[in-house]
Simulated scan of single mutants.
Amino acid sequence: MTGRIDARLAELGIELPQAAAPVAAYVPYTRSGNTLYISGQVTVWNGERKFVGKVGQDFTVEQGKDAARLCALNILAQAKAALGGDLDRVTRVLRLGGFVNSGPDFHDHPLVINGASELMRDVFGEAGQHARAAVGAPSLPGNVAVEVDAIIEVA
């Protein structure tokens, strides 16, 4: 039987990518008690890097939002893997940390990271409302436009 969150994803027309393997000396997630920590997820769709470049230079704010949304989809894919395929075990998205690859004159980091925040809200409803940081970075791994990490409460 399909879970409540899987049904919500289908209702929203959302397909999750494959959970990406780590590219350096870290693991994609760790769990301590009821807290799941998801490592920073970048703009990769099933192994293909997307949104390579800087927001405000190579991409508009709206395209940056799309990049942040892709990072959030990767967070959900990692959470699903960590929870044995059962996203219904997510009880609350506690915090997102968003990093925007941008130049020194770019100031709309919060608007970009809204792409990730809005996805969490759309998928989990009130349980998707979270604390957040949205900061600029002079570069990100692979020159991707956005990276987002997450702290999630789980049952």
Rank of each mutant, 00 (worst) to 15 (best):
A116L: 12
P104Q: 14
Y29F: 11
L87W: 01
T35C: 09
Q57I: 09
A116N: 04
Y37C: 01
G3H: 10
L16G: 00
F59H: 01
G103I: 00
D108L: 15
R132S: 11
W45V: 08
G142N: 12
R8W: 08
P141E: 02
L16N: 07
A25Q: 08
V23H: 00
E48P: 02
G103L: 05
G53M: 04
V27S: 03
A24N: 13
I38P: 03
R132W: 04
R95M: 15
Q129W: 07
G128I: 13
S102I: 05
A10V: 03
G3W: 13
N46I: 13
S102E: 11
E62H: 06
I38T: 04
F124M: 05
L76E: 04
P28T: 06
P28A: 13
V100G: 04
P104M: 11
N74P: 02
V42H: 02
D105A: 05
S102D: 08
G136P: 01
I38K: 03
L83R: 06
Y37W: 03
S39V: 04
G142V: 03
L16P: 01
D58I: 05
G56H: 11
G128L: 12
I75F: 03
E153H: 03
T35I: 14
G115T: 09
R92M: 03
R69V: 06
Q57G: 05
V146M: 00
M1N: 12
A20C: 09
K50W: 13
A10I: 02
N114I: 06
S117K: 10
R4F: 11
N114S: 13
M120S: 07
L111E: 15
D122N: 14
Y37A: 02
G85H: 06
R49I: 05
W45D: 08
A131I: 07
V52R: 10
V144I: 10
I5Y: 01
I113D: 06
P17E: 06
